[in-house]
Design a binder for these strands. Sequence first.
RNA 1: GCUGCUGUAGCUCAGUCGGUAGAGCGCGUCCUUGGUAAGGACGAGGUCCUGGGUUCAAAUCCCAGCAGCAGCUCCA
Length: 738
Amino acid sequence: MVQLKLPDGSVKEAPAGATPRQIAEGIGKRLAQAAIAAKVDGEIVDLNRELPADGEHSFQILTEKDPDALDVLRHSCAHIMARAVMRLYPGSQLAFGPAGDFGFYYDIESPTPIREDDFPKIEAEMKKIVDKAEPFERFERPTSEGRALCADLKQPLKVEHIDDDLKKYPTLSFYRQGEFIDLCRGPHIPDAGRIGAFKVLSIAGAYWKNDATRPQLQRLYGTAFFTQKDLEAYLHRIEEAKKRDHRVLGKHLKLFTISQMVGSGLILWMPRGATVRGILETFIKDELVKRGYSPVYTPHIGRLELYRTSGHFPYYRDAQFPPMYHRPAAGTLDLCQYRLAMGEIDDKREHEYIEYMRQAHMLPPQYTRETSQSAKLEMIHEFVLVLLRDLQVDLPEYHKATNHMERADALLKWLMEQEGFLLKPMNCPHHIHIYKAEPRSYRDLPVRLAEFGTVYRYEQTGELNGMTRVRGFTQDDAHLFMTSDQVESEMKANIELVLFIFNTLGLNDYRVRLGFRDPGSGKYVGAAEDWDTAEKSLEAVVKGLGMNYTVEPGEAAFYGPKIDFVVKDCIGREWQLGTVQLDYNLPKRFDLEYIGADNAAHRPVMIHRAPFGSMERFMGILIEHFAGAFPTWLAPEQVRILTVSDKFKEYGEKVETQLKARGLRVTGDYRSDKIGAKIREAQLDKVPYMLVVGDKEQSAGTVAVRSRTEGDRGAKPIAEFVEMIEREVSERKLAGAI
RNA sequence: GCUGCUGUAGCUCAGUCGGUAGAGCGCGUCCUUGGUAAGGACGAGGUCCUGGGUUCAAAUCCCAGCAGCAGCUCCA
């Protein structure tokens, strides 16, 4: 016998071998009909799955009302979509088909590509399956038999998955639905008829097992609901959310633009957007000075040597704009040095290198046709010899070298003597040299250097996205140099600063991510013990502040762990905004010191931090957060004066002048339109306050105040309105903002 | 970078079978002078993304490139 503890607290006994369906039937016919799946000890299982034979277990029947049931439904719908695809595109191979927040997807390798035009066909086939309402039947096989079954089904990706990851299990589970059998953990809905509404949404490429070196499959996205009404509500919600898109609003509200001639990923801040940015910058700058920061300015470029020392230039080689060398040969030799130093590399790195060389028009002609890595390196070597000869570079050490590493070193030595510059991808090396410019005592620490520093990174074309992913951006950056004793309090102060900014702006919907290193990856620099210390102190600080957070291995910067504040945009994509990063590495690389109380030299610790992340991304997120309707203190246009007719233009201008004298951002709409039209336009432009002036106001010396959010608020003396709006601005009120 | 889709007026988009280009909004001029989300009339505005190809003829069909969008990979 098994004891099942139901959600209402009662305990139900059932014989060994009972199924959730039988329990549901025992409770009530209606419940049994409504049942989708069951939850046993927190785990969701099929209705037909046998319950544990004995002991006490929590037990719950899931119905449509349960969010968990929707996931089950969607996962089943993914199977149905795959089944439809198998019918329409015989020979398709299936990969993974999970459910997610949005719906579900299935990764498919089909002999003919699936196109958007095919969606109606797929949906029609899915409808046939749903209408037949066949059950999902689970069965298990010993792993070797299961592997053979997948092979029989001509599903090599499933076989590969078993070999890679599932070998450790003694048995594998499958689900059969009609002619369709799929390796799957489950659980599933009882039968296909439970799906009330579904839609195939989109198709995109996705790498097998999320690995860019593996083949790319077609990821077919869809969603499903219990009712048609829910589906329609979802689709409507998506449409509404898209109206908040900062790319759409940025254009309508004239906040920013991007010009092909200037370059993709390079933001042109228009006057209205620049106004908002300026206010944000002043806001944070004032706050930083209060908190003991020292503002600095540094140039947009720096010597390559600087970025070789910091590690940024070699490490992010292909995510940077090309280096600027005076000597023409140097750029090419630099690329060759890069390739020789890489040695034997994987396909992905090789591919990136080829693209890089191709852009520079300097790929040796035979290079791509050669398959062996050593032959490729040899070819680069031959190419270098030609370059050295043709460009008359005298480099005896290169000729003396006996292997590619030595050759790379010889080239590097020469390159380091060449004057070269890099558009700065990071501000830290510049700030480090301000730190180094004078001897530092422990009494001076922490040194906090802050700058709105503009950096340039050559992001991949597919990544560029409005203001949220760009190639030139300004970080509200600062670097803190401190003793290790000061790390925790500085970390804490910085997290509090981020929270202060987020609170001021009403950004409450964020999550906190601790980015730690992935122990299995070689991309990190620095000693393991430094990493351990850094990761531990980060987590201690966050815990101490009582924050909810997730630890994510592999999310660290290459020089240290970090804490990120991540927000979602209007279509649910996550973006990193504020970040606080701990760094034991750069102080070593740049040999930073301070003199301690013991009169000996010590190494400081660094914190990199940017509460906004970048002005561009932050602005993009803020536009979406406020749906373009900025609170009064941020609004590019705070007040618009609307005259009832031409006759009151003079009075309107008088009011305008008075408000401007108080520093308010005010304009006047004195055109000969009707007042309704002017109001409509001001509303669409998201102006917080409209001042309607006509005969009554002119003779009384008042303004009729209309708030964007609250409508007509009646006539007020000008001074009273000014006092009200000034208070709203100084308190940085969010009221009225959406 | 990869897969797919898209590219027509300032914006949003239509454009049939391949036959010299359309709407709404916006903009300009004039009329209108009004009271809390659209007053009216007239008008200007086009490298149909770029470059090739097919054709008597290309916005339309084909190829390449560029840009944007969605997803994947990447992200100091």
